[in-house]
Design a protein around this nucleic acid. Structure first.
Lengths: 144, 144
DNA sequence: GCAATTTCGTTAGCTATGCTAATTAATTCG
DNA sequence: CGAATTAATTAGCATAGCTAACGAAATTGC
């Protein structure tokens, strides 16, 4: 691979990431939950109850932004704020059974759709994607 | 590659795309231009002058949304609305020299950063990423 | 050739997501 | 105990997305 191909790869990587996410968002929409809300709920479902600050950090947003997302999840009956007995300033945010169910269904739907998309790839192509994904994860982590 | 790895790949693909774009946005911020604005300007710089409807379609947003982006680009002196002599309803939107300069500089900066990131990959890893990118482009295009 | 329709863009107004600054309440530390 | 720190909320701002409704121009059809 020539050195000159690197900027080109970078450019195409950028473009394809944008288009991929745009596509995935369509499926998330069927969950009736926006990307940020679905993502926050996902942290609660897979990571368990968390404080607002923890949730904000996990989603890389500021606390006021996360507070509003939690407001929306709560209003939809998908999460609950609970008081933390050991620190009365803090709140424990927990996914409700309804929230857990909705998220798991949405995730299954997205995985079905994505899996279907990826099934059109040949075995070597899938292998290349697997390598590419783990490489990118490493590079992003290193330069954090 | 086992069949069971596909959903897992899908999941990681999703995650890595989110993190990659999050990282790239940091660099774009230095251009002093939000993502949507930079993206619209990019269409003008690389695709030439366009009508509002064409621009909206290219960016997959509705006309009112694009109109506001163009307002902002115009206010910043980066693009101009021109009247179309052959259709007095339409506007031709064109990047100004200043807009072109800003975008090209930003693009160069992003490419430098991304190229730097990718330089930490081994040759086979780069090859895998190249294959992965073109595969994804094909899959996304097919299922449009 | 003129009326009806369609098209292009804008305006108005709503929702959502992000931010910072300031506030309140609780905890910790000196 | 009082001061500083921490957790969350409130208020207010900017950006970006949408739909609905409108005016002006172009096109269609009779």
């Amino acid at each position: 691979m020539s050195k000159d191909a690197l900027p080109d790869l970078a450019q195409q990587l950028h473009s394809v990431a944008i288009h991929l996410l745009r596509r995935l968002r369509r499926t998330d929409d069927r969950m009736g939950l926006s990307g940020p809300r679905a993502s926050a709920l996902s942290v609660l479902v897979f990571g368990g109850p968390a404080s607002l600050a923890q949730l904000a950090k996990a989603e890389q947003v500021k606390p006021p932004t996360m507070a509003r997302l939690v407001d929306a999840l709560e209003a939809a009956g998908l999460a609950r704020r609970e008081t933390d007995k050991s620190d009365l300033r803090a709140v424990r945010i927990r996914a409700t059974p309804k929230g857990r169910k909705l998220l798991l269904e949405g995730r299954a739907r997205r995985l079905r759709q994505l899996t279907q998309l990826l099934e059109a790839a040949t075995a070597p192509e899938r292998a290349a994607m697997t390598t590419a994904v783990s490489t990118l994860r490493r590079l992003l982590k290193q330069s954090d």
